[in-house]
Amino acid sequence: MARRKRVIIEYRHYNLPLNFPVLLLSGDRWRISEKKSGRLHFHNCLEIGVCHSDSGTMDFEGKSVPFQAGDITCVPRHLPHTTYSSPGQESLWSYIFVDPEELFRNMFNDAAMNFESPMSPIQNYRYIMNKKEYPKIYFLACSIIEELKEQKFNYQANVKGLMLSLYIELLRIHSAENQQIEEPKAEAKDTKKEENILMISNALEYIHKNYMQPISIEELADLCHLSVSHFRRTFHSIMGAAPLDFLNSTRIDEACRLLRSTEDSILSISEQVGFHSISSFNRCFMKLMEVPPRVWRKQTLQSEANSPKASILEFTGWM
Rank of each mutant, 00 (worst) to 15 (best):
4 R>A: 13
5 K>I: 03
9 I>W: 00
9 I>L: 02
10 E>G: 04
12 R>S: 11
16 L>Q: 07
17 P>H: 11
19 N>I: 13
20 F>Y: 14
21 P>F: 11
21 P>H: 12
29 R>L: 05
34 E>W: 03
38 G>R: 12
49 G>Y: 03
50 V>N: 02
51 C>N: 13
55 S>V: 11
56 G>H: 08
61 E>L: 04
62 G>V: 11
64 S>L: 05
65 V>F: 00
71 D>Y: 02
76 P>N: 02
79 L>Y: 11
86 S>H: 12
90 E>I: 06
91 S>V: 15
92 L>C: 01
95 Y>W: 12
96 I>H: 10
99 D>W: 09
104 F>N: 10
109 N>L: 15
111 A>H: 11
112 A>C: 04
114 N>H: 09
114 N>L: 07
116 E>L: 14
118 P>K: 01
133 E>C: 08
142 C>D: 12
143 S>T: 13
146 E>M: 00
147 E>K: 14
147 E>G: 07
157 A>H: 08
159 V>N: 00
160 K>C: 09
161 G>C: 04
161 G>N: 10
164 L>E: 06
164 L>V: 07
165 S>L: 05
167 Y>L: 14
167 Y>M: 10
168 I>F: 13
169 E>H: 15
172 R>P: 02
173 I>P: 02
176 A>D: 09
184 P>Q: 06
185 K>I: 09
194 E>I: 13
198 L>F: 09
198 L>K: 14
201 S>F: 06
203 A>V: 10
205 E>P: 03
209 K>W: 15
209 K>Q: 15
216 S>Y: 09
217 I>L: 01
218 E>A: 11
219 E>V: 02
220 L>V: 01
226 L>A: 03
227 S>P: 04
227 S>T: 14
230 H>G: 01
230 H>D: 11
233 R>C: 05
233 R>Q: 14
235 F>S: 05
235 F>L: 08
238 I>V: 08
238 I>G: 04
240 G>A: 08
241 A>S: 12
251 R>S: 10
255 A>G: 10
256 C>E: 05
257 R>Q: 09
258 L>D: 05
263 E>S: 15
268 S>G: 03
271 E>H: 09
273 V>M: 05
278 I>H: 01
285 F>A: 10
285 F>R: 05
286 M>D: 05
289 M>Y: 08
289 M>D: 12
290 E>T: 03
292 P>V: 14
292 P>F: 14
296 W>Y: 15
297 R>I: 01
297 R>T: 00
305 A>M: 10
310 A>P: 08
310 A>I: 02
312 I>N: 01
318 W>P: 01
